[in-house]
Design a protein around this nucleic acid. Structure first.
Ligand SMILES: NC(=O)c1ccc[n+]([C@@H]2O[C@H](COP(=O)([O-])OP(=O)(O)OC[C@H]3O[C@@H](n4cnc5c(N)ncnc54)[C@H](O)[C@@H]3O)[C@@H](O)[C@H]2O)c1
Ligand SMILES: NC(=O)c1ccc[n+]([C@@H]2O[C@H](COP(=O)([O-])OP(=O)(O)OC[C@H]3O[C@@H](n4cnc5c(N)ncnc54)[C@H](O)[C@@H]3O)[C@@H](O)[C@H]2O)c1
Lengths: 214, 214
DNA sequence: GAACTTTAGAGAATATTTTCACAAAAAAAG
DNA sequence: CTTTTTTTGTGAAAATATTCTCTAAAGTTC
């Protein structure tokens, strides 16, 4: 059940969202890897290979039962579990994330938001009240939280990360564009918005160069 | 100059940020691939390979001149160019992105923000006034904009994307979690925040399973 | 200035991920 | 009931990306 490529997991989420839309519209009872792939911009072979890491979900000559496949993906991706999450940094990005309703359907629940700025502590963000950093450890331990989001300025991220790990956090999603130095047993995933955008400008330049040389 | 791995570009941005910090602190005149790599969580070989796609920047037995390498990366990544960008959707994420000062140093300039909600049009976001969707085409053509960010709800994204492409947009950074159907010559990069988080919960589950089976 | 140390660059070897190709199962057509 | 069509699942092949290994250049030590 391991040895699953990283990109496969991300694509499963994409398949899931499309299937959910189909179920909601009661559009189709069954879908082929070709149609599913085409709908989400992935090859049919890739769809089948991605699913094959987890078992057999389709029927030869027919395709996949939409509703069942959706349920299987929920199971695989852990959407029926509850993942309590704490978020540090009640700034622009932090507030956007807390206000976003799309995480809940995936079992992702931001249960607390922390900040060190006295002007922000006590404010309401989404359904939460911004708490002081001083409560980080207590909340994490009380609720047995393993996953945290870091949305503080670059220079604060390392310190916040260490505090989180000390409190028991096992995985961090870091939006601050800085590499964290943490024990190997802590999972860290970097969400680097600027570098994604730069990839796009880079490819745009490449295309221009190629066009010019033709 | 092509055939550069996608991940290499993203890492170059990471190297760049670290070098910028060194230059600002006047910390080091020279850095080895080992030190640079170690600082940003990448192997030394990876650092050297990444740079080798673009030329020779180091000195054997010595390392890389920090300031020169930073300048070379600026050149490679197009940070000294001006990339005007339009953003559609003055919601939570859209406003966060416009307010973020970190894009400017990479030549990324959000020059206009659009929304269709009358309550939002006319509001100030960062240094910009939210404009009506009706002005999208005019602004893009007037300013020769090629790059757009989509930050509207899922169901609106396809329509907005088509409007942008018709106005001349060549590359889209889509934050709405939905696959866009656009002509092949339009570059699309998806920023899927939820799927990143799910990858993390998935890996966390895996680790738990592995720990339990030991 | 000879021997040693450090470190970039590059090609080879590995590892990872995607695509291909086809057998086998299910359904549909004849 | 046989043939044809559809479509999955999978092992092999291809493509992509990373790591290893070694050479040679630059600097340092003695
Ligand atoms: N806003 C964006 O679009 C964007 C894009 C890319 C990256 N980022 C990164 O995301 C992070 C947050 O960005 P933002 O725009 O939300 O910034 P922001 O300044 O709006 O918010 C940062 C928040 O963190 C709080 N904070 C500072 N130090 C803290 C600490 N030690 N403990 C707890 N809270 C602390 C501040 O009080 C503030 O509320 C930054 O690292 C930024 O580089 C943001
Ligand atoms: N906020 C998050 O943390 C988050 C996380 C993941 C994904 N997303 C995605 O990002 C997108 C935006 O999220 P958000 O939280 O900012 O939502 P939001 O509701 O706060 O903002 C959406 C904005 O788009 C505007 N809009 C709607 N239709 C439009 C149209 N046709 N043309 C122009 N403007 C239009 C709305 O008026 C609103 O201002 C959504 O697709 C969401 O799924 C957001």
């Amino acid at each position: 059940m391991d040895g699953v490529p990283q990109p496969t997991i991300e694509r499963l989420v994409i398949y899931y969202r499309y299937l959910k839309k189909l179920v909601a519209h009661d559009d189709d009872k069954v879908i082929s890897s070709l149609d599913l792939g085409h709908s989400v911009g992935v090859s049919a072979a890739q769809v089948r290979k991605d699913l094959s890491y987890f078992g057999e979900f389709g029927c030869k000559g027919v395709g996949y039962n939409v509703s069942n496949l959706k349920k299987s993906l929920e199971q695989i991706l852990g959407f029926n579990q509850n993942w309590p999450i704490v978020l540090v940094g009640a700034g622009n990005i932090g507030r956007a994330l807390v206000n976003y309703p799309g995480f809940k359907v995936m079992g992702l629940n931001i249960i607390a938001i922390f900040d060190c700025d006295l002007d922000k502590i006590g404010n309401r963000v989404g359904g939460l009240i911004v708490k002081s950093n001083k409560e980080i450890e207590r909340v994490i331990k009380d609720k047995g939280v393993e996953l945290a989001i870091i949305a503080v300025p670059v220079d604060e991220a390392q310190g916040v990360a260490e505090k989180l790990v000390k409190a028991g956090i096992k995985a961090i999603w870091n939006i601050a564009p800085v590499t964290l130095k943490l024990p190997d047993n802590v999972l860290v995933y970097y969400e680097d918005l600027a570098s994604s955008l730069v990839t796009l400008t880079y490819r745009l330049s490449q295309k221009r160069l190629k066009a010019r040389s033709n």
